[in-house]
Design a binder for these strands. Sequence first.
DNA 1: GATCACACGTGATTC
DNA 2: TGAATCACGTGTGAT
Lengths: 203, 203
Amino acid sequence: MSLDDLCFNAESGNNRGRMGRRRYDNDENQTFKSKNLEAERKRREKLSTRLLMLRSLVPIVTNMNKATIIDDAITYIKKLQEEVVSLTQELQEVEVTLEISKPKVDELVDAAEEMKKWGIQEEVQVTQMNGNKLWVKMIIENKRGTFRKLAESLDTCSIAMMDTNLTAIKGALVITTCIQGMDGEALEVHQIKQLLLEIVRAI
Amino acid sequence: MSLDDLCFNAESGNNRGRMGRRRYDNDENQTFKSKNLEAERKRREKLSTRLLMLRSLVPIVTNMNKATIIDDAITYIKKLQEEVVSLTQELQEVEVTLEISKPKVDELVDAAEEMKKWGIQEEVQVTQMNGNKLWVKMIIENKRGTFRKLAESLDTCSIAMMDTNLTAIKGALVITTCIQGMDGEALEVHQIKQLLLEIVRAI
DNA sequence: GATCACACGTGATTC
DNA sequence: TGAATCACGTGTGAT
């Protein structure tokens, strides 16, 4: 495949300046001199192929010119770079917001050891009350932000807490509360107990 | 500035195959034939300049070859494109996570109207207790996620809640709790009251 | 010495 | 016409 073919096959039929292979070897003694003629052809072909590849990657192409192809590629790369930078910044800002609640390892270990030392064990009790309300008693490790995360999770599940009592003692967090579905639907005891256990395990 | 100069000024002193401008105009009659000679020179110069611009944008350059410059640009563009896609996905996932706790307008209005209807007014009381503890009583609008956000804010300020009681009534949220600095430092009554007011206003 | 990469000048071609 | 773009073959320095 020659360069001419390549350029001719491009969708935009702009192929000005291209001519068929010009051979000077008329029937004179001027058969061929240079040995790297074929190699040079290969090189040109490769270069043009790459250029077309580049062009195919760039979404907006103002012209088929070699120069403008590269030009468009340059502006496109700049745009992509800016996009990456701004996206990274945005993501980092969001992650900083989320990282406020990072756990501290020492507190984490302290709470568990303290509870073990005092013989306190985690537990989750769920009891049916009148209406759609459930009564909940939980004893869990009192790590930093524990209750906040619990509140977050319940809120996500559209579960409201009422008459909540919250006490910290010996590395443990004792929570008693009434819960109720925000949207009015009934809560099932076993289901909620499993949910709470999952939430606590995730914290 | 000639092409040779350009390539010669590049940091890698690779200028193989470049020779000084070859003029065939020996003192023979072979002065000049082609009229677009200078224009062609300009064109080549422009093209090479763009190529160098492109090269300067690409971080990793394996070789100074024209072909490899374009090659590297191609792989770089692909990498950038993938990066943009993955970053966009990540950001969207995070934003979806954050959007779980979006406020519902109707609830928001309902809470305020309900409180007004029953003549309940927002209030924040802070009283000094023994040690570093403060006793807090708050009556605020009971919007969805209100308490979660309050817990978040206090956690951020390294303030722990103990013996918390939380009741929802008539669109209002009644909170009584003891608070204490997590790091042991004393909390000042007025300061905390201002802080709580700010938090409530922000919610 | 063979290969590679390059710039060069030039005729052809398109707008 | 005239300017712009192109592929081509070639000489040459570098590897």
